[in-house]
Amino acid sequence: MNQSLYEKFLSSQSKLYRFAYSLAKNVSDAKDIHQDTLIKIWEMREQWERWENMEAYGMRITRNTYLNFQKARQRRLHLELGELTEKPQPNEIEKHMVIDDLKHQFLSMIQPLPQLQQNILYLREVEELEYKEIAEILEISASQVKVYLFRGRQFIKTNTQK
């Protein structure tokens, strides 16, 4: 294995955790998603040399891990909620998070947006990625990224100028 790739793997950890946190919006789920992601990347170490951008690839794996995590949670909820009269939704925690801590206010600000717009705003504003890189991570086209970024920023504009 190429040493520089290994170092990239080590150094991309914080970025991947931050992305996992921005998706899960709570520490315990973010840690689980992050751990699963690291394990997946490590298991693919033979392919690292073929990856053009390890960080972008890691972020894509993080997002897919999160989506699978959400699907599994939803399935379990359907199975286990028979006995409850009031039915909480899978994204309950996200809805209830009104974050007072300044460090997490960014998530609070983008929370009302659809998930994809949240992801795009996060990747552009926090991680400062190019449209092409964001498109690669989210598996959509660069022009879609631009459109959603436009909508996300318009939302920020409306809400900051009220």
Partner: peptide, 11 residues
């Protein structure tokens, strides 16, 4: 009662 960025929560 918290209201922030277009969202109300009451606990």
């Amino acid at each position: 009662v918290s209201i922030a960025w277009g969202h109300l929560t009451v606990s």
